[in-house]
Write a protein that binds this DNA or RNA. Structure first.
Length: 258
DNA sequence: ATGTCCGCGCGACGCGGA
């Protein structure tokens, strides 16, 4: 089974690119982030015609997450993180698909840092870690994937020295991510490619993609039983080169059947 | 510091967010 994550940066503007990518790569399950569309503007019919059932949590202007599947309609478990009811931003959606719990997240960017947006990011990470701990303890097969807005290590940034003050790479952010991993999660891309330079995001400025000036901020965290089935993981860099594309590239994992 | 793209509220482009 192939599972992918893709920050589309606006699903309305990105629909042709999204449909082309689905057609060419045929993932079984897809987590989308940054829909930037209200609930009623989600292109449910176009995705249905492409072969995907979907659930989504939209929001006007910003944020928004969705889970697509062509192996049975996602059974929604929850919208938003438990115990975070005061959070009105659409950043988390969880469903059971084909026997696996899929958590789709769009973690806050947090810039400028320090400041209230960075405080919100760290609070969100705390709530997320609490939920992740519960999921690990459940011993269910779980995949937590999406745009984490976290550069885990210096290997994951083109020029890490330029990012040390940034919310994506500040010590507090990196420490929170490492604490999360320490619960027992496997960073799928890094597990299979421990020393390789791999980026998932390239900003629109200064020909960042052409210069391979990127960041690795879209991640797959796998619970132990899922990690044991991990066969392959990668980035669809080609999609980042297309016209009218997102600033993120899709990321995917392949799991053994059974 | 720069730069670009998306959605919004407009009813042309500037602004917030990333």
């Amino acid at each position: 089974m192939k599972i992918a994550t893709y920050n589309v940066n606006g699903i309305s503007a990105r629909l042709p690119v999204l449909l082309r990518w689905l057609q060419e790569t045929a993932p079984d399950v897809v987590c989308l982030q940054e829909l930037k569309a209200p609930q009623e503007k989600f292109p449910e019919q176009a995705l249905q015609e492409a072969g995907y059932d979907a659930i989504w949590h939209g929001q006007k202007s910003w944020n928004g997450v969705a889970i697509l599947s062509k192996v049975g309609k996602p059974e929604e478990i929850q919208k938003g993180l438990p115990g975070n009811d005061e959070d009105d931003q659409s950043r988390y959606l969880e469903a059971r698909v084909n026997g696996i719990i899929i958590g789709c997240l769009y973690l806050p960017n947090g810039n400028p840092a320090p400041g209230p947006k960075f405080d919100y990011k760290l609070r969100w990470m705390e709530h997320f870690a609490q939920h992740a701990a519960m999921l690990i303890a459940s011993q269910e097969p779980v995949v937590l994937t999406g745009d984490y807005n976290v550069i885990p290590t210096e290997l994951d940034a083109y020029k890490p020295e330029r990012w040390v003050e940034d919310a994506l790479f500040r010590p507090e952010t990196r420490a929170a991510f490492q604490e999360l991993l320490a619960q027992g999660w496997t960073d799928a891309i890094r597990h299979l490619h421990p020393t390789e330079t791999i980026y998932t995001y390239f900003d629109y400025f200064r020909n960042a993609f052409g210069r391979n000036a990127g960041l690795r901020i879209d991640h797959f965290l796998l619970s132990p039983t899922v990690s044991a089935k991990l066969k392959a993981a990668g980035v669809d860099r080609d999609a980042r080169s297309w016209e009218k594309t997102s600033d993120h590239a899709p990321v995917w994992i392949e799991l053994a059947d059974g």
